[in-house]
Write a protein that binds this DNA or RNA. Structure first.
Lengths: 226, 226
DNA sequence: ATAAAGAGAGAACGATCGTTCTTTCTCAGA
DNA sequence: TCTGAGAAAGAACGATCGTTCTCTCTTTAT
């Protein structure tokens, strides 16, 4: 019911078709996702892809280009699935549920290791570097997609709802990997249903506001990790 | 109001006091958290810690021991803050709020890069390896802490509530780093308050609908950042 | 048919990886 | 006082890092 155009989250030039290139990208995607990026060397990838070094550097001028192509591929996959969910949905609210099911279904796939973009972000800290830019571009794309769908569904505050949706997705993805996938799925589905309730009951939005919480707690030393 | 014992998430032997060791650990914690683990070499750490290689290997038989000591330190810090929150809270429900404030306050600290354990998990895939075991031990500890606190607060489904609490924390931590911290904080605080409502308004059955959320004060300026 | 491009095979670059080593100096405990 | 541990200093190990190179096929387009 919505049309979606492919979106480029990187500055990579259009790739030529090539069996060797496809093997490289497929191998890199599998290994990068399963084991991380910085701990995997080029030798390992060209070895498992059965490709020579020269061929690798003909298609990817540097390892960074391969990483970006990997992220672009994951994004394209995500994009295709979201488009399919929207095409199959009978209305925008249904689309949000289907997209959610897509997400929670992944938690149970063998080899699931969380979100490829979140994982990549943990390995590259420069917020202006090409990898982080790709991560943030993907996330902005997803947020906008969800926000537009909430808006189409008639949600009174689509931006707010989208932020919560994205945050719940982040939590379900992480907790589904490092914890119990079933509980993550249940919690996510429940929360999405709560968000969608405002579409059917739009008049009830002025419930008593919750007390504002004081952020400066009595705890002293602030340190850096969460 | 609760006493908490320190907990070992690694198998490291007790460490001796040493200025050089402390400098190494402090430096490693800073760099590992800011830039990742696998992409940082030992030379870099001993250089910034102003320590020689021999001294490093006297205190840490291998780089992996340094990584584990780093995770243990983050856990100890987390543990101390949770204990302080519980000590300062007037009741278990209040403790959950204070712990939550601790979490959301971190999103605004300069240099915040998400959860150190989630980041570490993305770089080490072996679920039986010592690093992943430390990550999972820390998460199990936190989940149990939250569950016990929910139970003490009289929540009808403490395990379910704890799973949601942890998942919301994961989402807020990630979304607060890769997105807008303000929206992440608001969404987290609101959701925690929703979870705590079951203490005052006991649940009906085993599939309790969540109370309505308040939307009015949610859209405070900043939108999803990139 | 001819030229251009893609791919295979493998040597080699300097740099850095994690780790081990020897040597010297300092300082606190016995 | 003697002893032994901690720390500084730095050379060196083999391995791997990302990258560049030459040289020889095979495929494809003109």
């Amino acid at each position: 019911m919505y049309s979606q155009t492919t979106m480029q989250i990187t500055d990579l030039p259009p790739a030529k078709n090539s069996a060797a290139r496809e093997r490289l990208l497929e191998t890199a995607a599998r290994i990068f996702y399963a084991e991380g990026i910085n701990s995997v060397g080029v030798d390992r990838i060209i070895g498992e892809a059965a490709v020579t070094r020269a061929t690798f550097y003909r298609h990817f001028p540097s390892k960074q280009d391969l990483i970006l192509a990997y992220l672009q591929r994951v994004h394209d996959d995500f994009n295709a699935r979201a488009a399919a969910a929207q095409a199959a949905a009978k209305d925008p609210g249904d689309a949000l549920k289907l997209i959610g099911h897509n997400i929670t279904a992944q938690l149970f796939e063998p080899g699931f290791r969380g979100c490829a973009f979140i994982n990549a972000a943990s390995e590259f800290e420069d917020p202006n570097g090409p990898i982080m830019r790709a991560v943030l571009a993907h996330r902005a794309w997803f947020h906008d997609l969800v926000r537009d769908t909430f808006a189409a569904a008639g949600h009174p505050q689509p931006d707010f709802a989208a932020s919560r949706y994205v945050m719940l997705r982040d939590g379900a993805t992480t907790a589904g990997y490092l914890g119990d996938p079933s509980q993550a799925r249940d919690a996510f589905d429940r929360s999405v249903a709560d968000l969608l309730r405002f579409i059917d009951e739009p008049a009830e939005t002025d419930a008593p506001p919750l007390p504002r919480m004081n952020l400066t707690s009595s705890l002293t030393g602030a340190s850096f990790q969460a």
